[in-house]
Amino acid sequence: MSKEFEIVREFEVDATPEEVWEAITHETGGWLWPMEYDGESGIGPFGSTLTNWDPPHRVTSRTEDVRFPTQSLNQLDHTIEPRDGGRRAWVRYVHSGIFTDDWDSQYDGASKHTDFYLHTLREYLTHFAGRPVAFATLHGPGASTAADAFVAVGRALGLADDTEQGARVTVRGPAGRELDAVVDYRNPYFLGLRTDDALLRFFGRNHWGAPVGISVHDFAPDADAKADESGWQDWLDGVFDQS
């Protein structure tokens, strides 16, 4: 049965409103995935309509014909206000729309993803704002939908089950390469690792019946998105190799 939803988050960040605006509307590959906003034409990501375009204060994108089996309407609204004389910014984020099926699970997944994405936005603004990025995203095999799949991912990285957010760690990446990182986010559903040149995001979407996912935001001068995708895909497939 169709039912409306609304997810609201508010936060402050050590960035100017202009920096936040750029991150939300033009530098999206640094923390979410590459998207295009065209304020002059009023067209937002994935063919959405921009019902508000007031840089650097507010942007709203609305899609009324969502091509997704469990959703028929989607709207994203960002309001940005200056704090501390414009040296910091306050952000209000509202995600609303209509879920058409499996409402509780859809809302739970969207809400938890929101917290992780907005955390990643703050990490980007704090550590990498304005740097060119190579973005890659990938998904695990069918076996990564198992109930314990995300636990297996953490262990494959070399993390103890009780390694907490904020810990400095050395993890095992593609081809056995060791990566020094900070665990910038961790709960049973998501894991964020921040290196000197990258934000590595791990998604425990097995909790909602989907494969585990990884996104790589690589800010190194020689970053190669295809190489990142290939290397982490091999790594993730290897975690669930049953042979």
Rank of each mutant, 00 (worst) to 15 (best):
residue 2 S to M: 09
residue 4 E to I: 04
residue 7 I to P: 03
residue 8 V to C: 01
residue 11 F to D: 06
residue 12 E to N: 12
residue 16 T to Y: 06
residue 16 T to M: 05
residue 18 E to L: 07
residue 19 E to A: 10
residue 21 W to R: 10
residue 29 G to D: 01
residue 32 L to C: 00
residue 36 E to D: 13
residue 37 Y to W: 15
residue 39 G to K: 14
residue 42 G to L: 08
residue 43 I to K: 12
residue 48 S to C: 14
residue 51 T to G: 10
residue 53 W to H: 09
residue 56 P to C: 09
residue 62 R to V: 05
residue 64 E to G: 08
residue 64 E to I: 03
residue 67 R to N: 11
residue 70 T to R: 06
residue 73 L to R: 15
residue 79 T to S: 14
residue 80 I to K: 00
residue 83 R to S: 05
residue 84 D to T: 13
residue 90 W to D: 05
residue 93 Y to N: 03
residue 94 V to H: 03
residue 95 H to Y: 05
residue 100 T to P: 02
residue 100 T to N: 07
residue 102 D to T: 13
residue 104 D to G: 06
residue 104 D to F: 05
residue 108 D to P: 08
residue 111 S to P: 06
residue 112 K to N: 08
residue 113 H to Q: 12
residue 114 T to G: 14
residue 117 Y to E: 09
residue 118 L to Y: 05
residue 121 L to S: 11
residue 125 L to E: 05
residue 129 A to W: 08
residue 129 A to S: 14
residue 129 A to I: 09
residue 133 V to Y: 02
residue 135 F to W: 12
residue 137 T to M: 15
residue 138 L to M: 15
residue 143 A to W: 11
residue 147 A to K: 04
residue 147 A to G: 07
residue 148 D to I: 11
residue 149 A to S: 15
residue 150 F to G: 04
residue 150 F to N: 03
residue 152 A to H: 11
residue 152 A to G: 06
residue 153 V to F: 11
residue 155 R to C: 11
residue 156 A to C: 07
residue 159 L to D: 09
residue 159 L to F: 14
residue 160 A to D: 11
residue 161 D to S: 12
residue 162 D to G: 06
residue 168 R to T: 02
residue 170 T to P: 12
residue 179 L to N: 00
residue 181 A to M: 04
residue 183 V to R: 05
residue 184 D to R: 08
residue 184 D to T: 09
residue 195 T to V: 03
residue 196 D to A: 14
residue 197 D to I: 00
residue 198 A to T: 01
residue 200 L to A: 10
residue 201 R to L: 08
residue 205 R to S: 06
residue 207 H to L: 13
residue 215 S to R: 01
residue 215 S to M: 05
residue 216 V to Y: 00
residue 220 A to T: 03
residue 220 A to D: 04
residue 223 A to P: 08
residue 225 A to T: 09
residue 228 D to P: 02
residue 229 E to I: 03
residue 232 W to K: 00
residue 232 W to H: 01
residue 234 D to G: 07
residue 234 D to P: 01
residue 234 D to V: 04
residue 237 D to Q: 06
residue 239 V to Q: 09
residue 239 V to F: 11
